[in-house]
Design a protein around this nucleic acid. Structure first.
Lengths: 215, 215
DNA sequence: GGTATTACTTTCAGGATTGTATATAGTGCT
DNA sequence: AGCACTATATACAATCCTGAAAGTAATACC
């Protein structure tokens, strides 16, 4: 491992924190590129340029590594999502920009795949519950009720709002992982414009369900 | 393996077809209960009551088994869907029983997880393109256009039908894999009745989009 | 400069899983 | 009955991965 200079091994010594970071980065890359089975201590160690027991030194065990990876990913995802939801146009019921950001976080940045893998490997059960969607539901429902009252419309059931949020979440995650497959099964061209149109279409569907058109 | 009677091994000999079937059944059960990593030759062999090389004899390799499992699931699903859409009550466009079936295969029987796993690990590329969703879309769209004309409504764009189907697929897959997580994040009780209500709600949403209420 | 700490390496062991080689026993056919 | 075919079993090999043990080298601190 590392460089060998004149028969002696040149070691790179990082701070523990730094070492953990680069190891997690490498693990995440492997996961994204090679899928679930790509997280092998040897391979990750090779990528970083260290020996695999070093990983065990920092994370105790393979599971420790996976747990740390999961934790970090969840925190990032949560931060990204909160940023999307507390953006400037939030009180607005226009779902398009919000869903755009959510889809972007989950699809392009690969969080859906990551979370999917974590669900499959069972590590996610060991993490604390976030309740993020509950907060979001309450937020939207409040806005929805107020708007409906203002317009003299029938006030919707709170479970309806809940289901809208759940659908949004499930479809966003689902698109991030299964989207390409589904589009192929529908014989859609690889053109990302179609995926974009679908997203807009879906956002419109949700928006109309949340608040019927005033026009 | 098998029963041992007076020092001799009593073998159960099935037809190749039958053997493949029971093996796939056992694999599917393991998949549903333990997820993708639960598909281990030894375990499956134990469940069936055979030795694990027998599985290799019938499927060549573990990957062959997984592939066959997926293929069978897709074919079953395909048959179910086509049957559902060409069934007697079809002009009715009631999505509920259909979605029930889809959710059953993908959620309860664990195929969403398996396919998710295959996407992540890259094995899925070896399956032939089905184009199933395209056929389904055409079927639905035809029906939809006919019904709209009959009622004197505006004929919908074919892309609208396509997106409905895609949403149905993505949400079904998404629910199968991410559903439990999402429901937890929404602080919903584990009560499966809620998941059922959501499914019905979603089916209704799709139905209304396909054909607006006549009332 | 000396010493303690710890990040890191090399080497090896244990375990699990897939896959191979070869023998055996049902089943159908002549 | 005898024979061919093949589904099945046993035993073994090969590989891979995680983890342990023990020693080495870089950094910090006195």
């Amino acid at each position: 491992m590392s460089e060998i200079i004149a028969g002696k091994v040149k070691r790179v010594r990082r701070t523990a924190e730094e070492a953990r970071r680069v190891i997690l980065d490498a693990a995440e890359r492997r996961l994204a590129e090679h899928g679930p089975e790509g997280i092998r201590l040897q391979d990750i160690a090779n990528d970083v340029g260290i020996s695999h027991p070093t990983i065990l030194h920092h994370f105790d065990s393979r599971e420790g590594l996976v747990l740390a990876l999961t934790q970090r990913a969840i925190e990032q995802l949560r931060a990204d999502l909160l940023a999307a939801f507390t953006g400037p146009h939030m009180p607005d019921a226009n779902m398009n920009p919000i869903l755009d950001r959510v889809f972007d976080v989950l699809s392009r940045r690969g969080h859906a795949r990551l979370i999917g893998w974590m669900i499959l490997s069972g590590t996610l059960r060991q993490l604390p519950e976030a309740g993020l969607l509950r907060e979001l539901t309450d937020l939207i429902h409040e806005m929805r009720v107020a708007e409906c009252k203002k317009r003299g419309l029938q006030v919707p059931d709170s479970e309806d709002t809940l289901f809208i949020v759940i659908l949004g979440a499930i479809a966003s995650f689902g698109d991030g992982l299964f989207g390409p497959l589904v589009r192929r099964a529908a014989k859609i061209s690889d053109d990302p414009a179609v995926a974009d149109r679908f997203r807009a279409w879906f956002a419109d569907l949700l928006r109309r369900r949340i608040l019927p058109d005033a026009q």
